[in-house]
Design a binder for these strands. Structure first.
Length: 480
RNA sequence: GGCCCUAUGGUCAAGUGGUUAAGACAUCGCCCUUUCACGGCGGUAACCCGAGUUCGAACCUCGGUAGGGUCACCA
């Protein structure tokens, strides 16, 4: 058994949406699971659709996603070049070779003739007009410089079949397979021919790609056969959908990796989520590291039907990653977002990070969750009235006064320090701890809902600002 | 239209002839609690339809239906 070699062959025509990324991920997981090599090949033959910077984006995405390739454009493994435009010379040679082997033929039909072949559905099927041209006729036309293409000579009366690793047996009658163009009149290969040649030359053992190739694979297998090459194994992957009818689309920038990063998703959470879209490990685990995914990856856990991308579930998973972090780890990734939210304020950012960790699913939510910090000043007496907390205006006045009084002289502005201080003061004044805590929290923030309670708010705001706010709120309360 | 493929709750999914048809997200309720979250407990909710095979079918077969893919000198 030779070494497993898989490849990911994206074209640099825009964003990388998670469907593309997932295809690459599975090819990577499969290769690593089997101790093989994962190869990156850039398919940039479509110069028309080429997008500036897209190649760099592919490298960046793979890197952030934690998918590292063993061979690729800047990592030669002896099978290069790995950029298709740098391989242009070879395809014509192979096409001509295939003509010699009887698996292809020259075709001189012009566009007009081809267009006339359309049926009532507007679908044109080539009528094999040039398939049986004599050697002399071909020579003559070639010599006369008549433009030509090279077409695949699909054998007649056979059934081409193969065993797909996820879909099982796929078979197509050769009568349903057209003699497709392999080499265009400009001498360049069609995408699929280039693919076959490249995959063979690069020693790809397992071709992993989307289902759009499921039914045309028998046709390409016929090319391998005609060359006398060994056919690779195939793993076709069902599409990821935007909704029940539509696939995720690159053109509309759907669900693209970098957008999610910008929203504050962790790359490993995105990768983890997309691995689960269409694949389920034997033990049904959901949160997994790359290493665990490699370990658990197996072909029969891959589903045959398409799945709809659900950002809500990805958010949840991302939240799980966030919650699993230590406060220090979280602070590191959250810092930029917190900085933006508290600009110009003297607050304890680490304390705020601690509060945010269990309260956001994606980092981008931080600024809205922290917006209340700057909104102090919207005093509303109604916020102090809370039946369940047994707090009304009178209780609130006393509670805030008691808290303020006690906190003024407090040296130890720590969680324990503030807590003990407030609790003791409450007790001494015949108030329940909850009554003081609740009133104090509102007095500190002027907000009905805050991420965290009185103690957390006091720590985040630090002593000076806390005292100031309590004074302001108490004064307003006493005006009521 | 021809050919290929698919079909379990709203979503992701387990399930491979005998199950009270898992689990997760979402949703709803309760508990915990200094508001909010976190956490804990519980609820609602599914085998596309019709025939067959079988003692027995979500699972096997056939036929419908619905959806997707593909039929380019695009990639």
């Amino acid at each position: 058994m030779s070494e497993v070699r898989t490849r990911f062959a994206p074209s640099p025509t825009g964003f990388m949406h998670i469907g593309n990324l997932r295809t690459g991920l599975y090819a990577y997981l499969f290769a690593k699971k089997n101790g093989g090599k994962f190869i990156l090949r850039i398919e940039d033959t479509d110069q028309e659709r080429k997008v500036e910077g897209a190649v760099e984006m592919i490298y960046r995405t793979l890197d952030k996603a934690g998918i590292s390739y063993d061979e690729g454009p800047n990592k030669d493994g002896g099978y290069g070049p790995y950029v298709q435009t740098e391989r242009m010379g070879i395809y014509k040679r192979y096409a001509e070779e295939l003509v010699r082997l009887g698996g292809a033929y020259y075709c001189f039909c012009d566009k007009e003739r081809l267009a006339s072949l359309k049926d009532e559905n507007g679908v044109a099927t080539y009528d094999k007009h040039c398939r049986n041209l004599s050697k002399e006729e071909v020579e003559a036309k070639l010599k006369a410089g008549v433009p030509y293409v090279i077409r695949q000579k699909v054998p007649e009366g056979v059934v081409s079949e193969y065993e797909d690793m996820v879909f099982g047996k796929i078979s197509v009658d050769s009568a349903d397979i057209e003699d497709g163009v392999l080499l265009k009149s400009d001498g360049l290969p069609t995408y699929n021919f280039a693919n076959v040649v490249d995959d063979h030359l690069m020693g790809i053992t397992h071709v992993i790609r989307g289902t759009e190739y499921l039914s045309s694979t028998p046709k390409y297998n016929l090319i391998y056969d005609a060359f006398g090459w060994e056919r690779p194994k195939y793993m076709h992957l069902p599409p990821i959908m935007k909704d029940a009818q539509r696939k995720l689309s690159k053109r509309y920038g759907d669900a693209n990796f970098e957008d999610f990063l910008a929203k504050g998703y962790l790359p490993q959470a995105i990768v983890n989520y997309i691995a689960l879209l269409g694949w389920c490990p034997k033990d049904n685990r959901e949160k997994m590291t790359m290493r665990e995914m490699i370990e658990a990856f197996d072909t029969d856990g891959i589903s045959k039907s398409s799945s709809i991308f659900d950002e809500q579930k990805m958010r949840w998973l991302n939240g799980e990653y966030l919650k699993a972090m230590t406060d220090e780890e979280f602070f590191e990734v959250a810092k930029p977002y917190i900085d933006g939210a508290v600009e110009g304020m003297d607050v304890d950012e680490f304390e705020l990070a601690k509060l945010m960790r269990t309260r956001v699913d994606v980092l981008g939510e931080i600024s809205e969750k922290l917006a209340f910090l700057k909104e102090f000043g919207n005093f509303d007496a109604n916020m102090y009235v809370h039946q369940k907390m047994k707090v009304d205006l009178d209780v609130a006045k006393r509670a805030v006064a008691v808290a303020l009084e006690a906190l003024r002289g407090l040296e130890d502005w720590s969680e324990d320090g503030v807590k003990e201080c407030v609790k003791a003061a409450a007790e001494q004044n015949g108030l329940k701890g909850g009554q003081v805590m609740f009133s104090m929290r509102v007095a500190l923030t002027d907000a009905a809902v805050t991420p965290g309670g009185a103690i957390e708010m006091a720590l985040a705001l630090k002593k000076r600002e806390s005292i100031r706010r309590l004074e302001v709120s108490l004064a307003k309360l006493n005006e009521q």
